[in-house]
Amino acid sequence: MRAARATAHYVLLCLCSVVILFPVAYALLMSLMDGAAILSGRLWPENWTLVNYEAAFQQAPLGRYLWNSFFVAFMITLGRLIVSSLAAFAFVFLRFPGRDRWFYICIATMLVPWEATVIPNFLTIQALGWTNHYVGLIVPFWAMAFGIFLLRQQFKQIPHELYEAAQLSGIGNFRFFCRVVLPLSKTSLVTLAVYSFLDAWNMYLWPLLVTNDDRVRTVQIGLKQLQTQEIASSWGVVMAAAVIAMLPTLLLLFAGQKQLRKGLMQGAIQ
């Protein structure tokens, strides 16, 4: 009885995995076929080939796109960690007039969808001359209410006595922040980092608006370019590019999945 249930459970798990993994596997298989095989509609390659990967790197500056995406996502993540943790620290540990009011203002920003502000933001970036520059892709995303909120929840778990002990021994606020608060909040910081990186890597509308130069375009826009240029003739190349583009985030997710699961809950439901 128990064994039968276990078997049924595993069968169900495998079925779901097949369905979920299918698009990825499909893309991978297509990327390893030559054009004729794809057009013939095969599912399993007869001759395994890497020509599509070579072509992907030759026909488009895919390496450049990947680097751009990586750099932009990395800088957004870094900036978010710094900006959010500073604000969260002030909200949890410092006592100053108007603190709660500022906190509500920060939380209120969750009400505003990015899309509702995108037009003036585009005009601002244009006026600043930041179009086709990394800064234009990075800086607007540094402040993040969710990040502040998540880290605030975490910082609140740190016993207040630690802060008082620090004050008594003359450990300044900034020193306490760097030497105690940040090391004690590793899980939440990693969570926020993974989440931010995926989020930034996934960004589409904004880079579409503020870049039209291969030197700064991200991989999402690169895929779009590739897809519009190529059409039917070389689907294999597009699939090869897609497989390459999914690797970094997939690896990050595999590495950070557990942390992400633990950390997200802290900020999400409290």
């Binding site: 016993p159 006595e161 630690l162 008082e164 002990a165 105690v180 090391p183 004690l184």
Partner: peptide, 9 residues
């Protein structure tokens, strides 16, 4: 302090 307030890390 009562709970010692040691830095756990």
């Amino acid at each position: 302090f009562q709970n010692y307030a040691l830095y756990p890390h």
